[in-house]
Structures are given as C-alpha cells and as structure tokens.
C-alpha cells in the first residue's frame, strides 16, 4: 500500500528531520509511529500526505510514486487519504453533520449520497444523535470522534492520524484507539503517530519507534524510547 524508500527530509536550517527511512505499510494494516517530540513522526505523516515534499528518497502509494504528483493533481490525491489531527480542526460555523459532509461536498457527491454516508459515519463513531450540534457544544472526545468521522466518510484508502489522543484524557484516548481498531477491522489502512506508549502497549499492531529522524526499532514496543 505505502512503500517508503531511503526517505530523507532536511529543513532549510540544514537540520535533518528524517534520515534514511525505509518502511512498508501493507493494505489493511494498522501501524503506530512512536517516539518523543521531534523524533520525526509528524514529518513522516506530512510527507506521506504530501503536505511537505521529501529532500530525497521515494514514497510509493498504491504503486504511484508521489514525486510524480503535480500541484494540479495534489487535491485529487488528497481525496484518497483521511486525516485525523491532535486538534480536530472542526469548523465552528456549521453543524457536526456539515463538518463531516465537507470532504464529500468538495469531492462533488450527490446530496442523497452525502446524507447516507454522513449518517453512517456518525453512527460508526456513536454520535448520530448529535449530528446537528455545532462542534463547540461537544466534548473534546466527541469533537475528536467527529474529526474521525470526517476522515472516514469518503472511505479513504488510508487514514493518517497525528497524535489523535494528544488532547484527551486516558479514558477517552482508549475509546478513540478502540475506534481506530474497529476501522482497521473493516479493512482501512491506518498510520497513527503517538507518543503515548502506555496507550498502545497492549494493542496487537506494528509499532515503529522513531528517534532523531531514524527508525530505532520496529515491532512490538514494550518500553519507552525517551
């Protein structure tokens, strides 16, 4: 699904954010990217989503070299990916329903299809009853679930989540991780960046630890790399 080869990202200051990253994320796989702040987790997700371009190396997404994607093609590539952020970045001047509908509206779906899909997504995250509530009337956990519903509503090929539980208490964090697990069970590929090892230690998924821009270990994580 995603194949990363000798990936390097150097910032204008000359500092390496990522060095020689080689990684494969298979179709339907769920992986965790771990490591302390500044390890390169977010940068790696940004490079996969083409929010930034790599300094060298390749990212092959579903057989497609992302280096070949032009600025004109970029929006259409982004429609194949679902994003979940630490801050759910919901728009407060519209209802939860309209927030979730946004990617479908952008992609040009018909109204009846939008209603059907948004209701299904809301049902999946357990917030169907709050569809007409504006985000500011929801709790942090509910807002994050709306953010996840928005990410899955287009049925993306992959979901990239950057510290999705960073602003949540442990109970809500477990709930969100459980939700990701359920999404993975229906075949969605997920790459989740988190620094909270205690939250994912018991989860049976691949864990890739990053340290100073390099992969420190890959597999089951049992201790912190801080």
């Amino acid at each position: 699904m995603i194949e990363i080869q000798h990936l390097r990202k150097q910032y204008a200051s000359g500092q390496d954010a990522l060095r020689n990253i080689n990684l494969t994320i298979s179709q339907g796989e769920m992986i965790f990217l771990t490591g302390k702040s500044g390890a390169g987790k977010s940068t790696l997700l940004k490079l996969i989503a083409l929010l930034e371009r790599p300094s060298s190396g390749n990212i092959i997404f579903d057989g497609l070299d992302l280096a070949d994607i032009s600025l004109r093609q970029l929006p259409y590539f982004r429609r194949r990916i679902g994003f979940v952020f630490q801050n759910p970045t919901l728009l407060h001047d519209r209802s939860s329903f309209d927030n979730i509908a946004l990617p479908l509206v952008i992609s040009g779906y018909a109204t009846d299809e939008i209603v059907k899909r948004v209701r299904a997504s809301l049902d999946l995250v357990g917030l169907l009853k709050k569809s007409q509530q504006p985000p500011q009337n929801l709790s942090s956990g509910e807002q994050q679930r709306i953010g996840i519903a928005r990410a899955i509503v287009t049925r993306p090929e992959v979901i990239l989540a950057d510290e999705p539980t960073g602003n949540l208490d442990p109970e809500l964090s477990k709930e969100i991780m459980g939700l990701f697990s359920r999404l993975n069970q229906v075949g969605i590929t997920l790459a989740i960046a988190t620094h909270d090892l205690s939250l994912i230690n018991d989860m049976p998924y691949k864990k890739i630890a990053l340290c100073n821009g390099s992969i420190a270990s890959s597999g089951e994580v049992t201790q912190s790399h801080d």
Partner: peptide
C-alpha cells in the same frame, strides 16, 4: 483561514 486550510487538506482545489 481555517476553513480554507481544512478544505485544502480534504482535497479542495484552488478554484473550489
């Protein structure tokens, strides 16, 4: 600004 940012992340074209 936030709406523009989120829309672009969701795959909105500049024209949209």
């Amino acid at each position: 600004y936030d709406e523009i940012l989120v829309s672009k992340l969701m795959g909105a074209t500049d024209a949209y």
